[in-house]
Design a protein around this nucleic acid. Structure first.
Lengths: 122, 122
DNA sequence: CTCCGATATGTTTAGTCAAACATATCGAGA
DNA sequence: TCTCGATATGTTTGACTAAACATATCGGAG
């Protein structure tokens, strides 16, 4: 599979500008980084290579015009990464919008599923 | 670019089942078919090859377990395609959900844009 | 001043997906 | 029955993307 590995209902991507946007994948990665305290651990937890996770972080930081993730190498704890205040704000905001969207479309989704006699997921 | 050529704000994909889902591209194609009365014309109007449009229609019809688009070849008018009642229902429902989503997230999007000093689009 | 774990990148390979190109088919109407 | 426009598919080519593999770097701790 490859398309919607998150929610099984609404796949939401919010575009703030030409380069700044957040979707399910980016949000999950931010959340995973916040939880694990490391880009590598976050990536592994999501089943992606370190490089892929790191590249996403770059795109996030550059796209938003300021770092959403603050990483450091060496030092105490041998490096790691955390969300900046901006990063935490983006994540929280995205989750908020995701929740509102689910609520907003839920009745319509139910209606369609009934109409087509479809089951939510596998 | 390649990701969100529709709205510039919310990119919504709704998943009804493992195989049945609608996103901006599929919705636009359905709408274009309804307007032009042909898969080929609809595809051309959207800047995609006939094959791509046709393949999408197949995926739609099979994914939803019943035809959303009804096509015929030869005959009066030399063939063409229209939305079935199911197809029209899916399209209308998607537009409805899209509108509700925009309304639901608009304030939050505005908040983020202000916070990051970002401009909507190019 | 060496070690270690995590970040930071570059290069190469492979796999996926869309575009391009080629036909075959259908069927009312001329 | 021949034509024409649109549907219906298959095959090949090319572009883009992700995976795999390889290093280099940082810097407190020991």
């Amino acid at each position: 599979m490859s398309g919607a590995p998150e929610d099984g209902l609404a796949h939401l991507r919010v575009t703030l500008s030409e380069t700044a946007y957040v979707g399910p994948g980016r949000a999950d990665l931010l959340e995973s980084i916040a939880r694990t305290g490391s880009i590598a651990a976050a990536g592994k937890a999501m089943g992606m290579s370190y490089k892929r996770a790191w590249t996403l972080v770059q795109a996030l930081n550059e796209g938003f015009g300021r770092p959403l993730v603050d990483a450091s190498r060496g030092g105490a704890g041998q490096g790691g990464a955390q969300l900046t205040m901006a990063g935490a704000a983006v994540l929280a905001s995205y989750r908020e919008m995701q929740g509102r969207t689910r609520l907003a479309i839920a009745p319509e989704v139910e209606r369609l599923r009934t109409l087509f006699e479809l089951q939510p997921e596998k």
